[in-house]
Design a protein around this nucleic acid. Structure first.
Length: 60
DNA sequence: ATAATTGT
DNA sequence: ACAATTAT
């Protein structure tokens, strides 16, 4: 559950725009506020993990 | 234990 | 400040 499904256009920490599937995806929102969705990605170029906002309609 | 991720 | 998550 809560794992990534579809690919997302993300900006890697090195500034490359690419489509990646998040290893994990979840909602990050305070109580009573809208918040955002966050994905955990691994840059295939460097192996570095990073987090990135997901589209609001991304399936969690 | 902390950083980092967004928007209110 | 607050929310969840997890690699570091």
């Amino acid at each position: 559950m809560s794992s990534g499904k579809r690919a997302v256009k993300v900006k890697t920490p090195n500034g490359k725009e690419m489509e990646l599937v998040p290893e994990k995806a979840w909602a990050l929102a305070p109580k009573g506020r809208k918040g955002v969705k966050i994905g955990l990605f691994k840059d295939p170029e460097t192996g570095k993990y990073f987090r990135h906002k997901l589209p609001d309609d991304y399936p969690i």
